[in-house]
């Protein structure tokens, strides 16, 4: 996260968790097709969306992330059959709790992106970033000790 003079130039820090089988491959496809999205997104590869512990997301916000997105296979297509259903349920709970804490619902997102949907991946990221950008910097939950 860096803030330049005008708020337009706000560069959010965005963490994207992508499951290895669909969404990470979808991100690779976006790359192969040269579909650009801002460099603010950094991807962390996980075997399945169900590997993402809500604690990872809390940690990201604590460390200064402005938005966190979780991408997995479409319902029914999870490589491990049911992983994304667990992920969906867990994230619904977590996101509404975060919203209650003051981390707006728009800063968190779950998206289903298949290995064939490079265009969807890029579009999703573009959309998510501009949403987070319009919200501005995340101030809630940040661990003040580790930030200047």
């Amino acid at each position: 996260m860096q803030v330049n003079e005008s708020s337009k130039e706000f560069k959010p820090c965005i963490v994207a968790f992508c499951c290895n089988w669909c969404s990470y491959a979808g991100a690779d496809l976006a790359g192969s097709n040269r579909l650009s999205y801002p460099a603010d997104v950094k991807i962390i590869r996980v075997p399945c969306s169900c590997r993402v512990n809500p604690l990872f997301i809390l940690r990201a916000f604590q460390r200064g992330a402005d938005g966190v997105i979780l991408c997995g296979c479409h319902p029914g297509d999870c490589h491990y059959t049911t992983g994304n259903y667990y992920a969906r349920r867990r994230m619904t709970m977590l996101f509404s709790m975060l919203d209650y804490l003051g981390i707006e619902k728009e800063r968190t997102r779950v998206e289903w992106v298949s290995a064939a949907e490079g265009a969807k991946f890029a579009a999703t990221m573009n959309d998510f970033i501009s949403t987070v950008q319009s919200l501005g910097e995340n101030r809630k939950l940040r661990d003040l000790r580790c930030k200047e």
């Binding site: 996980v46 169900c50 590997r51 512990n53 809500p54 990872f56 940690r59 460390r63």
Partner: peptide
Amino acid sequence: CGACTVTCPSTAMDLKGFSNRQIMSEVD
């Protein structure tokens, strides 16, 4: 897949190669 690791209330369950600490360190 790691479904169990997240469900475990006592953080006893972890995934080799994608452990809680490994992923946290990436986040950090």
